[in-house]
Nucleic acid binder design. Structure first.
Length: 512
RNA sequence: CGGGGCGUAGCGCAGUCUGGUAGCGCGUUCGGUUCGGGACCGAAAAGUCGGAGGUUCGAAUCCUCUCGCCCCGACCA
């Protein structure tokens, strides 16, 4: 049976000829990879196992993430610093739970300069240890506290199984590390930064999240507790999108980070750490994108609008280009940074004057996630209008609209804001539509049968045994114990698995 | 790291069973006609068939090893 390679996708609404994108329905993991390839976000490094090359369009998204988060960190009093990528191996072993958690995934440098090293270095999987070491040197008194630093860095974890952006051997992230005089202060910091992450996810990435606390078995290795934001992907799986840890005095003790209290006594500092990574880009893709390719909210888009000139004669071409450049210039002056942002976010416009047909350009820019397309032809020039098409039909615009050039420019910022809000609204709607409240084990098994998953609010007896049992039987994990205001109001009930008393429902799902 | 699948031109694939020195679609380059949703005609460039070794007169094809990717598991941002 001679099946033409292109047949299967062409029938499924996508109809791609050049770049093929599987449908989410047909093959979700393939779709994810296709979107990354076709939007030119990244590619597998190939020559280095488990690593990826983040291409310019993908890195530009990371830069957007960095810029906004960095401003938020500065606004909360944090300062950037940078610590070595290599950590003496002995450092890692100083905190018992930390070693246990990270030992299996360490890459170790044993030779350098042509000689075997006396003590090997590990490539940082995270920097609690080496930062603990420096904190012990920098902190002497309560007057030195709180100490609030952040570092933008790469880290390496030798994972068994990698997926582009979601889990790669090397990834980019930021790790905040703070030291406080009291546990109370530390806890406040943990919550504050979780709040920053939650706000960022929703306001900037238009990615709705559930804020909560990790169970003991899911928390960071070496932390007292971990807080997290969890996002729901379109296939129903959960993605841990950010974490904020209360390290207590664990690393303080391990690295002897002591300070003199106001009363003159000596005490160990209370530390926190918190981070988000390039994984956010994976979450961004799986939150908004569709079968035609990447969809980006304006605040994440490296390119906000593309102008496609339409013409027949050279005279028309020249006239259209003049208008296109005029519009581009006008839009480029607009700044869509949030009201009190400490940075500016100017509109980026591309005039696509390549000598190929307009239709081909439409598809290409759609694949790459550009929010707004402007078609500009002789008829438009005659009427002083532009033809506008949004990447997804929403209240910001649907189908092709014809708007006067002046009005289009005057309302462009509002159009993007509406589009941004609409993407968040749509994502929230999807989440709400998928959220379920389950009370019986039969319902639970049906909900998570096969590779199905969703956000399920269920009662849990609070024991690690039950949690492990559920995971073993269904692959479902407790994503978090929700914070106040997240999920259903706390009501006592009985555990969905054990039938024992439960104080409240927790969020369960299969996870990336 | 276990099970399965796969690596052939930039992308998607055929060819592998049954060895004979590489092909298709799209893309790319050049010329022309086109141009408001993936154009058409003509010409052309592009592959050490993932890598190494072996069998053979001859290997994309058979054998061994190795690297990498994808899916499912165990482990994790």
């Amino acid at each position: 049976m001679a099946k033409k390679p292109s047949d299967e996708h062409e029938q499924e609404g996508g109809g791609k000829i050049g770049g093929k994108i599987a449908t989410r329905e047909a093959d979700y993991p393939q779709w994810y990879q296709d979107v990354i390839r076709e939007a030119e976000l990244a590619e597998p490094a190939k020559v280095v196992k488990g690593c990826m090359v983040i291409k310019p369009h993908g890195y530009a998204i990371w830069e957007k993430i960095q810029r906004d988060l960095d401003a938020r960190f500065k606004a909360t009093g944090h300062k950037n610093a940078y610590f070595p990528v290599l950590i003496p191996q002995s450092f890692i072993t100083k905190e018992a739970e930390h070693v246990e958690g990270f030992a299996p995934e360490l890459a170790v440098v044993t030779h350098a300069g042509g000689e075997k090293l006396e003590e090997p270095y590990v490539i940082r999987p995270t920097s609690e240890t080496i930062i603990g070491y420096y904190f012990s040197k920098w902190i002497e008194s309560y007057r030195d506290l709180p100490l609030l630093v952040n570092q933008w860095a790469n880290v390496m974890r030798w994972e068994k199984r990698t997926r582009m952006f979601l889990r790669t051997t090397e990834f980019l992230w930021q790790e905040g590390h703070t030291a406080h005089a009291t546990h109370e202060d530390g806890l406040a910091e943990v919550q504050r930064m979780l709040g920053v992450y939650g706000d960022f996810a929703e306001e900037v990435m238009a990615m709705p999240v559930i804020r909560g606390e990790k169970t003991a078995s899911e928390k960071f290795a070496g932390a007292l507790t971990s807080m997290c934001i969890e996002a729901l992907m379109q296939d129903g799986k959960a993605l841990q999108a950010g974490t904020s840890h209360d390290l207590g005095q664990n690393f303080g003790r391990a690295f002897d980070v002591q300070f003199q209290t106001e009363a003159g006594a000596l005490d160990y500092v209370w530390q926190t750490s918190w981070g988000v990574s390039t994984r956010l880009i994976g979450g961004l893709i799986m939150t908004h994108s569709d079968d035609a390719g990447l969809v980006l909210p304006p605040r994440m888009a490296p390119i906000h609008a593309v102008i496609v000139p339409i013409f027949r004669s050279e005279e028309e071409h020249a006239a259209v280009l003049v208008a296109a450049e005029r519009i581009k210039a006008a839009l480029s002056d607009l700044d869509i940074a949030p009201p009190r942002a400490r940075y500016r976010d100017f509109i980026e416009v591309v005039v696509d004057d390549r000598p190929i047909r307009p239709g081909a350009k439409f598809y290409e820019w759609e694949r790459r996630g550009v929010p707004v397309r402007i078609e500009l032809g002789p008829k438009d020039l005659a009427k002083g209008q532009v033809c506008v098409k949004m990447r997804v039909d929403t209240a910001a615009g649907s189908g092709k609209e014809f708007v006067s050039e002046a009005e289009f420019i005057a309302t462009f910022t509002a159009r993007l804001a509406t589009f941004q809000a609409e993407l968040l609204r749509l994502a929230r709607e999807r989440m709400r539509a998928r959220e379920v409240t389950l009370d019986t084990w039969d319902e639970f098994l049906a909900t998570f049968a096969g590779d199905k998953s969703t956000f399920a609010w269920c009662h849990w007896d609070g024991t690690a045994e039950t949690e492990a049992r559920i995971k073993e039987e269904t692959k479902v994990t407790i994503r978090c114990i929700p914070l106040p205001g997240q999920g259903p109001d706390p009501q006592p009930g009985v555990c969905i698995r054990s039938g024992r008393p439960s104080p409240r429902r927790v969020l369960m799902a299969k996870a990336y």
